[in-house]
Design a binder for these strands. Structure first.
Lengths: 207, 207
DNA sequence: ATAACAAAACGAGACGTCTCGTCTCGTGAT
DNA sequence: ATCACGAGACGAGACGTCTCGTTTTGTTAT
């Protein structure tokens, strides 16, 4: 969110920021998001929970959404990314299951919905979100599809970016809009059906 | 959103609701949504613009989101649904273009993003949205795919609901999350690539 | 190396503003 | 005579800014 105050800046006298307060604020934000959700989260509430002055928050974060984004990302690293690499379909399924796991964490869906609504009114936040967060989420899936193409399982002229749009889009669509379940049966059929469209010929879809 | 007060109810003495105020409120909501967006919309602002007391709004709508939903849906009927029925791929493309047109109306994307965030905190709204709005949007696309299956262009065992998840999901994903463009090239490739996955054999994808 | 100093960030909270949702009025329509 | 209406007062609560002392931290002088 912001550069750390001490670590190896070039000569310039680094601003001195209390790392204790920083951590307390992020932790309090995560707790309050889980307990009460995005809408009910207030700066004053975070300050009180963290034992911190309001100004300390306003000094380091430009908006409530920026704070929530940092707290959200800091809590999203707990689910480890799969590294199966058996078949393309299995890889895609595993990555979809991973995405679902990340999004259905207690902090996940509600917070993402709140952030999404703020993207439309906060240009700076939208830029960072679409430059950093979105591509990071897509990268692993795109790599798996490219491996499949190198192995010849996927047509050379297939549009893999578009495939990621469809795969991830279906997941987010269910999470944010339709409310349909995000279970293993869903990710399994989604992976196999989309991959069939990308396949270079008849490739048996396992399991 | 609520039954109209006067028109042809069965005998029961309908409460007398001012249709003039009703329309003024919905119109003012639409205008303010276009001018200032979802976040900046306040009940007090709507009341002032509509020349109406706040209580009149609180009397007839349970929440800000419910009012926005009504205003949004009332303004979404202006884009007419296509009725091409030439080939399945052309139908799907036309329906995707229609969806994009509806969502990129001035009132569209910003409002939808705001509503989405409220679904997570407003159970009643979420129920109505997922029972009425979402299926209505999916219906036409599903019908087009079923016609394709009857014609034999689509495999009998294809999961068409899942295909709608992927098609609509990709559109909403770009609109709400990635910010990637929603242009004709996108809908064209999306339609052809997804349909290829559903196809029963080699079906030439026309321009 | 230690002490003294200045600068910046800190916790706390007062302040005026805004919107909330509820509540009363008096008015006008049926 | 009833009831929705426009208007707006009301207390609650969060906003973002600001001003207090206080504590921390980096720099300078001894």
């Amino acid at each position: 969110m912001r550069e750390l105050p001490d670590t190896g800046d070039d000569g310039a006298p680094t601003r001195r920021r209390s790392e204790r307060s920083h951590r307390a604020i992020v932790t309090a934000t995560q707790e309050l998001l889980v307990e009460r959700g995005y809408r009910a989260l207030t700066i004053e509430g975070v300050a009180a929970r963290a034992g911190v002055g309001k100004q300390t928050i306003y000094r380091w974060w430009p908006s409530r959404a920026a704070l929530v984004l940092e707290a959200y990302l800091a809590g999203s690293d707990e689910v480890v990314r799969p590294r199966t690499r058996t078949s393309t379909c299995a890889d895609v399924r595993a990555l979809l299951d991973w995405l679902v796991a990340v999004l259905t964490q207690p902090i996940g869906g509600r917070v993402l919905a709140g952030l999404v609504s703020d993207l439309k009114d906060d240009t700076e936040l939208a830029e960072r979100f679409q430059r950093d967060v979105v591509p990071a989420r897509r990268q692993a899936m795109l790599a798996a599809l490219e491996r499949g193409r190198e192995r010849g399982e996927i047509r050379a002229d297939a549009d893999l970016e578009l495939a990621v749009d469809a795969l991830h889009g279906a997941v987010f669509y269910r999470l944010l809009l339709s409310g349909a379940p995000l279970d293993a049966a869903f990710t399994k059929r989604l992976a196999s059906q989309v991959l069939l469209g990308l396949s270079s010929g008849f490739v048996p879809i396992g399991d």
